[in-house]
């Protein structure tokens, strides 16, 4: 927070100090990529960050071009200045077995249950249980202290945290409030007992003011609508909304007057043809008629994007913008997005 004294305020300032960052977004908005970039930005200058994936899609592995990741926290990315990002592809079955072993020492019973299909059963019949196990895994990593890898209860409460921050690549916006509302999800399932206690503990972390739910969106109607609905839903649950991250933003290529003209009646064909002639393109007049539709489409899209953007601003959450990167997403693109996040104030 000391940066505030000697710099202008950035939208990303809002997430400094948070320990659990839950990243959601409508399918196709680039949620996984943004989660990975956010993890890198938070790890800058010597931070230790865990990126948890919970949907079994192996999206992080795909993003990094690596083979599928096992159920294991593995250091995958190193950040200039000494920071590191570990990645965990969480899996409900493995989490349940781990949970049984960790809290009850019931390895044998767990294996017997697995043989019988009980674990599959438990996690299929009740997606709620699955969600509790997955959020539980992330919140355990948030609470974990150094020097006590396994049993959180055995940790020295004064030891520093194992991870400086945990970033969760969470389910899409349409499912996020249900996913995070673990208490009510297990209510029909377990009114008392260890799962219930576990759920309460998980909820405590999720409700804490050091947990933020970030929304990735595009400047399109549906993802923006889902962002609005998602923020309203999680606020109702008492969870804190963090940033709204506008992904794949493209700058307008025209000034406002030309945009307005192109959007209403189509672009000025004479001006287009004159320009094409000047650039010595063949058949300037025919080309002007042919490309007019693309220019008009661009102008209409910019108009829509501005409307969507202003609606998103009205949500009152810090709004960050990330560019559409030509050539798809690779490590270089990921580093570029990380840099853009840092520029807009994102840090631990």
């Amino acid at each position: 927070m000391s940066d505030r004294e000697h710099g202008p305020q950035h939208p990303g300032d809002a997430c400094a100090g948070a320990r659990l960052h839950i990243v959601t977004g409508k399918g196709g908005t680039g949620k996984t990529t943004i989660a990975a970039a956010l993890a890198q930005a938070l790890a800058a200058d010597g931070g230790r960050v865990l990126l948890v994936e919970v949907e079994g899609r192996q999206g992080v592995a795909t993003l990094l071009g690596s083979p599928p990741l096992p159920y294991e926290e593995r250091e995958m990315l190193s950040v200039p200045g000494g920071g590191s990002v570990s990645v965990l592809a969480a899996d409900a079955e493995a989490a349940l077995l781990e949970y049984l072993e960790m809290f009850y020492g019931m390895r044998r019973a767990g294996q017997a249950l697995n043989r019988l299909g009980a674990v599959d059963f438990a996690t299929t019949i009740a997606p709620g249980l699955r969600d509790v196990l997955l959020t539980g895994k992330a919140t355990e990593a948030v609470r974990r202290r150094r020097g006590a890898r396994r049993r959180p209860s055995a940790a020295d409460p004064s030891a520093p945290f194992h991870y400086d921050a945990v970033v969760m690549d969470a389910p899409p916006t349409g499912r996020i409030s249900q996913f995070l509302n673990v208490n009510s999800e297990v209510a029909g399932l377990a009114r008392v007992g260890p799962i219930r206690n576990h759920a309460d503990k998980v909820m405590e972390v999720i409700r804490s003011d050091r947990t933020l739910v970030h929304f990735v969106t595009l400047l399109e109607e549906m993802p923006a609508q889902e962002t609005r609905d998602g923020i309203a839903e999680i606020s109702e649950l008492g969870l804190a909304a963090g940033m709204v991250l506008v992904n794949m933003a493209r700058p307008p290529l025209l000034d406002d007057a030309s945009l307005e003209a192109a959007a209403s009646g189509g672009p000025d064909l004479d001006a287009l043809a004159a320009g094409f002639g000047e650039a010595r393109v063949e058949n300037p007049r025919e080309l002007a008629a042919s490309l007019a539709g693309e220019v008009r489409g661009h102008a209409l899209r910019v108009r829509l994007e501005r409307r969507v953007r202003s609606d998103l601003e009205d949500l009152g959450r810090p709004l960050l913008e990330l560019p559409l990167l030509a050539g798809g997403v690779d490590r270089a693109a990921l580093d570029e997005l990380t840099r853009r996040l840092a520029e807009q104030g994102v840090r631990r």
Partner: peptide, 11 residues
């Protein structure tokens, strides 16, 4: 010159 035409070509 011709910002409209160059934008159309970029698009």
């Amino acid at each position: 010159v011709h910002p409209l035409a160059s934008a159309a070509l970029r698009l």
